[in-house]
Amino acid sequence: MPDPRRGPNRLGAMSEITREQVEHLAGLARIALTPDEIEKLTGELGHIVDSIAKVQEVAGQDVPATSHPIPLSNVFRDDVVGETLTQEQALAGAPEHDGSRFKVSAILGEEQ
């Protein structure tokens, strides 16, 4: 299998995305990608990352980050109880439930 790191990208630079990285990211994102998808995404992500990495060029120390387009602060709610869902509504969309709780298959490993 060719080493995806060696594939030149569109800008002629070396992609820094490896197959192992994509596998790791897919694990973090809980997507069971097929080997073909991993292969394809490794190349695509390399191209994409190379083309968007230019944001670093202008992101100087003196530039503050903007996380909200319109600056607001201290948006709070009064501590007053409102309307809740009924149990039936809550469970209506569930793939599986026991009548009152959502049912999932066994959890691997320890409690978080």
């Binding site: 994509v22 944001v55 503050p64």
Partner: peptide, 24 residues
């Protein structure tokens, strides 16, 4: 996958952090 990458440890400042600065 791209977003997971942009936020992951070691890349946040270079990617997501820089992008927020571009926003400014």
């Amino acid at each position: 996958i791209l977003g997971t990458y942009a936020l992951s440890a070691g890349y946040y400042d270079a990617y997501y952090g820089s992008a927020q600065k571009v926003r400014t």
